[in-house]
Design a protein around this nucleic acid. Structure first.
Lengths: 256, 256
DNA sequence: GCTGTCGTTGCACTCTGTGCAACGACCGTT
DNA sequence: AACGGTCGTTGCACAGAGTGCAACGACAGC
């Protein structure tokens, strides 16, 4: 749309390949040297490109700063929600999204079951950290010292006979979860409620969130619930992809 | 230099703060809505901004990709990282790597403290240039006219009672740092955080980067932190050696 | 159905970006 | 030293590109 800006922006991927001097930039843009110079100067003023000692240009650190800052403001929930809604659309059960923060795991989004029998939960509420599938996924991915510290600091309430009894058992469970890349909670919190979860990962591969599908026994058994695992994992992976920016996800309307 | 490109680029940091709609962007740029629209469209075509469902704009994924490539071009970072990780392994504190670029000092890598109490920082974020140990090291090594120019252009915010008060004091401090070859920041930025730093030098002896160890008072005192100085300097020197090519650098792990 | 908000479009004006040519700094060669 | 070559930089005149304006349209909330 805007020729000048367009040209300026085309310089960036060009420099991403490696440093280039003025003439090379001008040639590859198909413009006069003086034009390229002015564009590069403007980019330079904004820290988008940097001029090394040999006068060649390369990408600047401001790009870095911008991306980093944007990543911090990135709302997983916003990105995840449509995916979670779609998942709920297909399976009908309650879908949760949770994050880890300062030794706690919190639900930050929820799409309600479309069955009449529902489990109780509330966005913003701390999760039963010792048993919930999402909690296991998030803790499993913590750096080992912190994971151990948290596990040992926790209480292990016996919600049911299948609740995790103590730190040792929990750490074992976390190892399993880390290995298999998904988690379950079969009646560990409420006798009659089962749950499966999968992690959402950021660019660095660390779990930034986890999502889960929960359903009461009376609606589906554990075997039937596990059949949803591939779908759940695909959903989690799609969210990860969009969150890390590997997918230019937002399917924009094409011009007619 | 180029008004149009300048306006377009000013949109990016604006969006980095969080999503904004067309009117907000236009208002903050001080231009008409239609102008802002065209700029945003151009940015959009290049993937620099992204339009969410509610029509608001936020930074796009292309920016992340570019930042990634920009980071890869900073080869100090790549070389330094394993050394920094090893340093963190041995002392447990937060380790930073920073570079100087166009009057700013930026963190380009970070290895998190393994203690529960951590300092806040972010890769890509400009460093508190008047007080940070890494900033002192990098400025101390600038050619004298540029050093003076930068020092006199800076603000000297009084973060704490121990912050550098003015340009004269800063230039004195830089002289000391240049002489001793290492730097400190004892509570100059945050009252309770101390920090020691050492320079990474290129073939020409100039500081191309600086690394530092930071720790809160509550974890280690200044005396104890200074005991880490030899280890820190050895780390910095090892990075320098590998970066200048004096060490047959990437000693690959032998396959078992 | 009305009113207000916000994104979008077409147009006329003019300001900004452009290419050109000449200059100058730097480097290696003879 | 003088020369020729390369490459970045500058001033200028022209026109093409960007701008603001006003009107339109989509949508939401009373």
């Amino acid at each position: 749309m805007s020729q000048t800006v367009d040209r300026a922006l085309r310089i960036l991927p060009l420099l991403a390949e490696g440093p280039a001097n003025l003439e090379q930039v001008a040639a590859r843009l198909g413009v006069h040297k003086s034009t390229a110079l002015r564009l590069l100067r403007t980019l330079h003023e904004h820290g988008m490109v940097y001029r090394q000692q040999d006068q060649r240009y390369r990408l600047g650190t401001r790009l870095f700063a911008l991306a980093q800052q944007a990543a911090e403001n990135l709302d997983v929930r916003e990105i995840a929600h449509p995916h979670l809604a779609a998942l709920n659309e297909r399976c009908g059960h309650t879908v949760h999204l949770a994050v880890y923060e300062d030794g706690e795991v919190l639900y930050i989004d929820k799409v309600e079951s479309r069955y009449p029998v529902r489990m109780y939960s509330r966005i913003g509420k701390p999760v039963a950290i010792t048993v919930a599938a999402v909690a296991k996924l998030l803790l499993a991915d913590l750096p080992e010292p912190e994971r151990r510290a948290v596990a040992e600091r926790l209480d292990y309430p016996a919600y049911t006979a299948r609740s995790t009894p103590n730190a040792a058992a929990y750490l074992d469970e976390l190892a399993t979860v880390r290995e298999q890349g998904w988690a379950t909670d079969f009646g560990g919190h409420e006798e009659s409620i089962n749950c499966i979860g999968a992690p959402v990962r950021g660019t660095d591969g660390r779990a930034v969130a986890a999502c889960s599908v929960s359903a009461p026994n009376v609606v589906v058994g554990t075997a039937e619930l596990l059949e949803l695992l591939p779908l759940l994992r695909r959903t989690a992976d799609a969210i990860s992809a969009e969150y890390s920016g590997t997918t230019p996800p937002p399917l924009q309307k094409a011009k007619p």
